[in-house]
């Protein structure tokens, strides 16, 4: 097994854990954490792909992931602002259909 292959496996595992977290934890901050885990899985895949040839490293996936990291923090910050707003309005930290009745 090559180094990129190992990191693709990690990426798949982290992505799957993120999907499970997204499905199983209704608390919205946890959902945001799970989405970030999934994103990190995708980033790992792209960077492992950039290293498939050990001699030359492809800079395009690196640049895309760098953009992606900034987009991820923007989206996370926006999502957290909405969660705070929801909490101030309703005192809840999960969505209606997920709340225990």
């Amino acid at each position: 097994m090559s180094q990129p292959a190992l990191f693709v496996l990690i990426a798949a595992a982290v992505f799957a854990i993120g999907v499970y977290g997204l499905l199983s934890r209704p608390q919205l901050v946890r959902r945001i954490l799970a989405l970030n885990l999934m994103g990190n899985g995708v980033f790992l895949l792209l960077v492992a792909f950039a290293r498939r040839n050990p001699e030359t490293i492809d800079p395009v996936p690196h640049a895309m992931v760098l953009t992606g990291i900034v987009i991820a923090v923007s989206a996370t910050a926006f999502a957290l602002a909405i969660v705070r707003h929801l909490y101030r309005q309703t005192g809840e930290v999960s969505l209606g259909e997920d709340r225990p009745r």
Binding site: L9, A12, G41, F49
Partner: peptide, 11 residues
């Protein structure tokens, strides 16, 4: 699984 297959295809 889908992710891993995709990664394998990419590599």
């Amino acid at each position: 699984g889908v992710f891993a297959v995709l990664g394998w295809a990419l590599l």
